[in-house]
């Protein structure tokens, strides 16, 4: 009997040591992802930013887009959100508005307002992994990918980062085999994300280039997405970032598509 008791005691001890180690040093992968998702997309109850997007292709030709994003969280579970994206340039898209009611577990509702026609259009696009306004950022990179769509594992913990490997639960409809995210241990900001294809080759890379505190919240003010295959890179610079603005829910409605809410856009 003695050896068995010893074995059980040893196993119990090992479990409690492991458990203690995780609870003190490393939260679970899902907890890290939830905090990173919050840090990247859900800070404050609402937010605004002026975004300057510079797209540079492999031949160094550049295109620029400037737009203002207004964002409001519609619950406290880091799920439902609304976005209002008002374009300032280039000139052919000036005053266009892209509005999103983001949902978890079903397709987002998306609208586009075309000022020259005074037309409010519904957008049927359901693929979230297509280019956002012709850049290397995908729609999903801007609005956030639902963490529940992937299985996350903590593959490495360095002095500064948790490194997570995320594998899609449903490989259909995504172009990656898996991706790895380097998440800052204190701020939980995803500092780098690398996407891998089926052969394990890197082909797409996100890097947070600059982080600054805004209203006490650590905020990415410059981010970059590289398409390693085509050589096209997009840099987003965020200016005039503000959090917890008191805008009413109806900012995200047809009324303000037709008549942009200037007090929040400048």
């Amino acid at each position: 009997m003695k050896p068995i008791v010893l074995v059980i005691a040893t196993v119990t001890l090992m479990f409690s040591v492991t458990f203690a180690a995780f609870s003190q040093d490393a939260p679970s992968a899902d907890e890290i992802v939830a905090k990173a998702n919050h840090a990247a997309y859900y800070q404050g109850k609402s937010g605004r930013a002026d975004v300057k997007m510079t797209i540079t292709d492999s031949q160094n030709r550049t295109r620029e887009r400037e737009f203002t994003i207004l964002r409001k969280n519609m619950d406290e579970k880091d799920q439902e959100q609304r976005f209002f994206v008002y374009f300032n340039s280039p000139a052919d898209v000036r005053k266009m508005v892209f509005m999103v009611w983001k949902h978890i577990g079903q397709d987002d509702d998306r609208w586009l307002y075309l000022p020259d026609l005074d037309l409010v259009k519904r957008i049927a696009a359901s693929d979230k992994r297509t280019s956002f306004v012709g850049s290397t950022f995908f729609y999903e990179d801007v609005s956030g990918r639902n963490p529940a769509l992937d299985t996350h594992e903590l593959v490495e913990t360095t002095d500064v980062y948790y490194v997570l490997k995320s594998t899609p639960k449903d490989a259909k409809g995504v172009e990656f085999a898996y991706y790895k995210t380097w998440i800052h241990k204190e701020t939980f900001i995803p500092v780098q994300t690398m996407y891998y294809d089926e052969s394990g080759k890197e082909y797409r890379k996100y890097t947070a280039l600059a982080v600054e505190p805004v209203d006490g919240i650590q905020t990415v003010v410059k981010g970059q997405m590289e398409d390693l295959r085509s050589g096209t890179t997009t840099v987003n610079e965020y200016a005039n970032v503000k959090y917890n603005l008191d805008f009413p829910d109806d900012i995200f409605s047809e009324r303000y598509l037709r008549k942009p809410p200037r007090e929040y856009l400048r």
Partner: peptide
């Protein structure tokens, strides 16, 4: 009725 048929391809 309008639907995205494939990436960057929409039909209505």
């Amino acid at each position: 009725y309008e639907q995205e048929l494939a990436k960057n391809l929409t039909g209505a």
